[in-house]
Amino acid sequence: MRYQTDRQRVEGLGSAKDGTVEWWKQRVAAVALLPLVFLFIFPLLRAIGSDFDEVRAIYEHPFNAIIAILFFITIMSHLRQGLQEVIVDYVHGKAAMTTALLVNTMFTTLIGVTGVFSVAKIAFGG
């Protein structure tokens, strides 16, 4: 026999109240990625197999550099939200889930910042 009241058991649980915003942001990033992924992948596919100077020349071009930076910024949020959905579904236990979500945010931010910084450095001729 437990003496905990039903009220006490459920308090603080339930909806996080910002699910719709997360859902909508995921779709905004998805729509933005439709053109971006095409514009990003074609120069990239051409670059694979080329030598250092040729690849540098591709990403020194403002168009390719801007597209690549937009791609990395957009993928950073789309990837974080997508992986978060998977973690929330499959990782159980508060400690494990919190750790996984923290690692996810750090990992996706690292990817985004590294990508943006690298492309910017190349484009600015550094």
Binding site: L44, F52, V55, I111, T114, G115, S118, V119, K121, G126
Partner: peptide
């Protein structure tokens, strides 16, 4: 899986820089 791919691609861009 694409999270792994983008990690590889990002590493390649970093190397280029």
């Amino acid at each position: 899986g694409l999270a792994v791919s983008i990690t590889m691609i990002t590493w390649w861009f970093l190397a280029l820089a």
